[in-house]
Amino acid sequence: MTTTDERPARRGPRWNVDGRALRLWTISGLATTYLVAWWCFAPAPTTAPAADEPLPAAAPTAQVAPSGPIPPAVWWHDLPPSERPAIALPSGWVVTATKPGDGPTLAPAPIARRPPARRVRVRTRSS
């Protein structure tokens, strides 16, 4: 019997990539490096508020309507006079109607004013 060294069969290269795959890997690597570098060193966006800029006031907390059935809305002048709530009007305002047949509405009280006149000039002369 002939003794021969049985050597394991020679394997091929571990990373057996062809030229096309190599280009893809190279491009992917460069792109990843660029993105990581840009993310780390890029300047802050200009729309960000400056450090010494006062922050806007916080919006008031919204009132959350209580849950439950919504009360029916009704015009003040549609209520019977006995059920109309008292309303404190601003000074100089009255309840009036915009035209005959309309319900009352709020309007400034009429103030008697004269139309603006052109500058008054006094003429002095011998009389």
Binding site: A117, R119, V120, R121, V122, R123, T124, R125, S126, S127
Partner: peptide, 24 residues
């Protein structure tokens, strides 16, 4: 108050910048 050219002008006029008096 103007009486034929003899006038008394009270205050600073209707617009606050004086009464304008034309001398004929």
């Amino acid at each position: 108050l103007d009486a034929g050219g003899d006038a008394a002008l009270r205050g600073a006029g209707p617009e606050g910048d004086g009464w304008y008096v034309d001398v004929e």
